[in-house]
Write a protein that binds this DNA or RNA. Sequence first.
DNA 1: ATTTTATGTCAGCCTTATTGACATATCTCA
DNA 2: TGAGATATGTCAATAAGGCTGACATAAAAT
Lengths: 172, 172
Amino acid sequence: MPDALPALKSHHLGKDILAETPAYDLIELFFFAYRDFVSDPDRILDEYGFGRAHHRVLHFVSRNPGLTIAELLDILRITKQSLNRVLKELIEKDFIESRMGTSDRRQRLLFATIQGRELALKLAKLQTRRIMRALSGMEPEAKDAVSRYLLSLIDPDESAHVKQLVFGSGET
Amino acid sequence: MPDALPALKSHHLGKDILAETPAYDLIELFFFAYRDFVSDPDRILDEYGFGRAHHRVLHFVSRNPGLTIAELLDILRITKQSLNRVLKELIEKDFIESRMGTSDRRQRLLFATIQGRELALKLAKLQTRRIMRALSGMEPEAKDAVSRYLLSLIDPDESAHVKQLVFGSGET
DNA sequence: ATTTTATGTCAGCCTTATTGACATATCTCA
DNA sequence: TGAGATATGTCAATAAGGCTGACATAAAAT
């Protein structure tokens, strides 16, 4: 938006008006980018008889071995009934396995099988290719800016939680 | 990710490996950010008996007065049967009106009513507040970087089309 | 005059989500 | 030890938002 400002000249409350002027560009670009981003894995998932819900579950389990049902529900923000259907299918088709918790035997600890990890990686690589293509034309600092922007877009009271989940696997 | 590089030292094909190393951070942040971003309008939409599908239709019609059905289908990437259900409801409840095309009388030109524009604006402002909060802690160049990143994430063969749709209303 | 295009509509189906109720096993704490 | 809380599973009904396929109409294009 090269020139959204001239209209402000007739106002003295520039800052308020700026704050209330809809950021249509970022709203719409977010929609289109997400639409195309999630569409990449669809063709592959189809071959396995899976949908996007399966992808999300497989992704987070593969990335976080030993994840519990409760943690997964918290990540996905769906009900246990919804989760159970797709999880059951992933377990039946041997992409995820569920082991009894060691310290708390009520818990089910989820692990991706070899097959599951392979599929999750395949899908992640596909999306990474799109991300890399987008970043390739940009300055090196851009990636960090994008990452910080997305993190700040998240509800503040959970951004720490997400930060831990996304960046916390390894160090910290 | 402070140090994803050391592993590369044992390889001579650094670039290939980097290209194939999944960008888990950007993949997951995109998921969480989008999840929270689209959740904002939900409560308000509920009051009107609308869902996210209604929001998308109302948004693009409000932003592009005189949009045709075909153009809307191309933006949303859904079937006309799916569109028709939500569109019919938006028209019945007087948030959108449909006029016969002037040059081509087969076309339906879609316009948001006053009520429709008000709701669309209300929702856009809500999402803008989140965006502004995210941008507030960042350098001024960040917004442009984010905008370019999102645009590049879109399928290349349509990015020009989206660019026109998003930025093209007004000048060009 | 025929064909193509833009739209609408009927009917049936799928996926992913929801709510509410209830069951079971296990853990925790008084 | 016994009561209650917790983690999970499951049954049933429902809703939203997609899909395919088939068919209809009006208007434009050739």
